[in-house]
Design a protein around this nucleic acid. Structure first.
Length: 279
DNA sequence: CAGATGCCCTGGGCGC
DNA sequence: TGCGCCCAGGGCATCT
């Protein structure tokens, strides 16, 4: 579930709790979670004895710089990164565990195994550079400053429908099914509105709403849906779901116009919007 | 290039 | 209590 605000909330927790800590051992027991590596033991060999120095994020991907290595984590649909003092039993589906000096554990728990953990093989990964495996990602709306005019120009150059474009990680990194619906509702635009049909003001407004919503969600620790599967590193759910105006609100009243929220199957998943105030 | 499918997985909720 | 469906934050490959 995790999209940019959830990944950023996890990043902040990791930054506060793991920077400066030495890695004593890595237990990579879930082969599918480390599928980019032929040998899961490679994570232990390469990370053992290093110290976490920087915790970064590009879109939905998290990066931990440790020594010469960059560990990349994607939470997929059901992934969690949970801290523990190591005294409680590891939850089911703890596929990768970083064990720090002193006993603190960072557990990658992922029932559906759509997420993954891998060490970058990028040529000489340096502090500021993106790992090579993340080179395909578009700009990150919270960390890569982009003038509104440039965003509008890029957006209007594309003929594809707005929701597909917002969710295209090569165009823009970090937006998924929840926030695309919330952003489009705030901007008064339908999911299937062609990007090229927007005028300059509409495109700029869409950008403004995107930044506002992403920042507001980060402030509230992201969104946890009814299953409460998303948690931060301390195991706490997010609170931004209380602010959702369309997502998972089929049949409820639109706070903006009093219309009724509709759910529509699209692209193999659900899209929520208000047919009255989104054009 | 744009769009529609289907697949990779486990688990929770619901109707019967 | 159990069984069979349907659904789920993502991403990728493969068709038209």
């Amino acid at each position: 579930m995790p999209e940019l605000p959830e990944a950023e909330t996890v990043r902040r927790g990791l930054e506060a709790e793991t920077v400066g800590r030495g890695i004593a051992r890595v237990d990579a027991t879930g082969p599918r979670s480390v599928r980019r590596h032929r040998d899961p033991a490679e994570l232990d060999r390469r990370l053992r004895g290093t110290t976490v120095e920087v915790v970064g994020r590009v879109g939905k991907f998290l990066t931990l710089d440790a020594g010469e290595e960059v560990l990349v984590v994607h939470l997929g649909m059901s992934g969690q990164l949970l801290l523990s003092d190591g005294r409680d039993p590891r939850p089911k589906h703890s596929h990768v565990v970083l064990v720090f000096e002193g006993g603190l554990e960072l557990r990658f728990v992922d029932p559906r195994t759509f997420g993954q953990v891998f060490l970058s093989d990028g040529p000489e990964p340096s502090r500021r550079a993106r790992p090579a495996e993340l080179a395909h990602l578009g700009f990150d709306p919270l960390t890569d400053a982009l003038p509104a005019a440039r965003f509008a120009a890029r957006l209007r150059a594309r003929r594809t429908m707005l929701k597909a474009l917002l969710m295209d990680q090569r165009f823009l990194a970090g937006i998924g099914n929840i926030y695309s619906d919330e952003i489009l509702h705030a901007a008064g635009l339908r999911y299937d509105h062609p990007a090229s049909a927007l005028d300059e003001d509409q495109a700029r407004a869409l950008y403004r709403h995107m930044l506002r919503i992403l920042r507001a969600s980060v402030r509230l620790g992201g969104s946890s849906l009814s299953d409460m599967q998303y948690r931060d590193v301390y195991g706490r759910p997010g609170r931004y779901q209380q602010r959702h105006l369309v997502f998972a609100r089929e049949g409820l009243t639109c706070a903006g116009c009093g219309g009724t929220i509709v759910r529509q199957a699209w692209g193999g998943r659900s899209t929520f919007f208000c047919p009255r105030c989104q054009i």
